[in-house]
Nucleic acid binder design. Structure first.
Length: 254
DNA sequence: ATGGCGGCACAATGCCGA
């Protein structure tokens, strides 16, 4: 069983790349973020034709999430029931006995901004909801764009990022709280090369210079952690023409 | 010090992302 996550930065633009990537990487399940499509414009027929069922929750211009699966999808929930939110950032579903939560965690813009306060409240509500979900689903996976680099080794140049969002103590504490709740960062269960990232700025040759951040994560409950045999970041699509600024992360479960 | 790229929209400049 392979489960994956990818912030595609517009599914309208990236659909051909998603279909190509799935052909090359026929994972069981793929979570997408930043689809940037209202539900009436979602390309479900093309995705079905590729052999995947799909559920989605979108809006115009911003945000938007989806779960693609080769297996039956049940018990779909859109957004955190404990958090009133106009922004479409969460979709959850059960697939093959695994509770999957696909999340696009807010960016936070800057630590002194209103958007940062929204991010912290959003994360606090996420913790509360996950505590409930944990009590009902031993096999629980949280995949998505967290917009948090958990440690300095997840940042190309930690000194250059001091004082900014994505690396602040508050955001890292929120990530650490997920770990204290029992979730494991699948990527860190294994030996990994240094300076491996999941996002690179479009500007200043970020990808070519490998100036990136690891902000897309797969977190696993203890039961799933015990089943996890690999977690990799696939840089391939970042090298394609007109790429997303993020690239997929894939976990293998026994 | 700033913005640099890319996607989007009541679209030709401004907002937002990370």
């Amino acid at each position: 069983m392979k489960i994956a996550t990818w912030n595609v930065n517009s599914l309208k633009v990236r659909l051909p790349q998603v279909l190509q990537w799935l052909q090359d990487n026929p994972v069981d399940m793929l979570c997408l973020q930043e689809t940037k499509l209202t539900d009436d414009k979602f390309p479900h027929a093309e995705i079905n034709a590729a052999g995947y069922q799909v559920v989605f929750s979108g809006q115009k211009t911003y945000n938007g999430v989806a779960i693609l699966s080769r297996h039956a999808i049940t018990d779909v929930v859109k957004n955190n029931p404990l958090f009133e939110d106009e922004q479409q950032r969460i979709i959850a579903a059960t697939i093959e006995g695994i509770r999957i939560i696909c999340a696009y965690i807010p960016n936070g813009q800057a630590p002194d901004s209103d958007k940062f306060q929204y991010k912290l409240k959003w994360l606090d509500a996420l913790h509360q909801w996950l505590a409930q979900e944990q009590s009902q689903h031993a096999k629980l996976a949280l995949l998505g764009d967290y917009n948090i680099a958990p440690e300095d080794r997840d940042v190309h140049d930690p000194l250059a990022w001091v004082g900014q969002n994505l690396v602040s103590p508050e955001e890292r504490a929120a990530f650490a709280q997920l770990q204290q709740m029992g979730f494991s960062d699948a990527f860190r269960l294994f030996d990994q090369p240094e300076k491996l990232f999941s996002w690179w700025d479009y500007r200043r040759m970020g990808f070519r210079l490998n100036r990136g951040m690891r902000i897309d994560h797969i977190l696993l409950s203890p039961a799933l952690t015990a089943q996890c045999t690999a977690c990799v970041i696939d840089k391939t699509p970042r090298k394609w023409e007109q790429p997303s600024d993020h690239t997929p992360v894939i976990a293998t479960l026994q």
